[in-house]
Amino acid sequence: MSKLVAVLALGAGLSSAHLQPAVSREGGNFNGAWSVELVTESGICDSRYSYSVSVQDGQVRLISSADRATMTGRVGTDGTVGLNVSNGSASGAASGRLEARSGSGTWKVSPLCSGRWTARRQTTRTAQAE
């Protein structure tokens, strides 16, 4: 069960709301790697999970996962997010919103546990030769 919740944390910021490429209101896009933290507020799940997901043209995929969980989701053009995750007989859902650099929302693995998630865009630094 904790692996399902961990995968839910990975994808918590990600949705099937819109089919267009994910673009923020500021004109940027949501493509790239995101760090997601899930905090359990009620139920029997572990208290906290931290993972990474990748967004590419609105499609979401796990960057790191050590189990057999599956995830479907998209990020909408307005940042609206939604996600469905399953692992064996357990399943869960998450929803919320991404902004240009961060996001937040809620998740639930019914009836076992629920909570909130936050996401931060990972930055890539490149070295420049002089």
Rank of each mutant, 00 (worst) to 15 (best):
E99T: 12
R61E: 14
G13I: 07
P111V: 03
R61G: 14
G58M: 02
N87F: 06
I63Y: 00
G96W: 03
T77Q: 13
G92Q: 04
R61I: 12
T70K: 13
V36I: 09
R120Q: 15
V81F: 07
R97S: 06
R120D: 13
S2N: 15
N31Y: 06
A22F: 02
R101T: 02
A127S: 04
S95V: 04
T70R: 11
K108F: 00
R25Q: 14
D57Q: 14
A12S: 15
K3A: 15
A22S: 14
V55P: 04
I44L: 06
A12Y: 08
T106N: 12
G43E: 00
E37V: 11
R120A: 14
V5P: 05
A129Q: 07
S47W: 02
R116M: 01
T40G: 08
N31G: 10
G13M: 10
V5F: 11
D67R: 09
A119I: 02
G43K: 11
G96Y: 01
S2D: 15
T40H: 00
D67V: 15
G32C: 07
L10A: 07
S110Q: 13
N87S: 08
D57V: 12
L8A: 00
G103H: 05
G103N: 05
S54P: 00
D78S: 12
V81Q: 11
V109R: 01
S50I: 12
V23K: 15
Q20G: 11
C45A: 08
E99G: 02
G58L: 04
S50C: 04
G58I: 06
W107N: 06
D57C: 00
S65M: 09
L4E: 05
S114Y: 01
N29V: 06
C113H: 05
L112F: 06
D57I: 07
G32F: 08
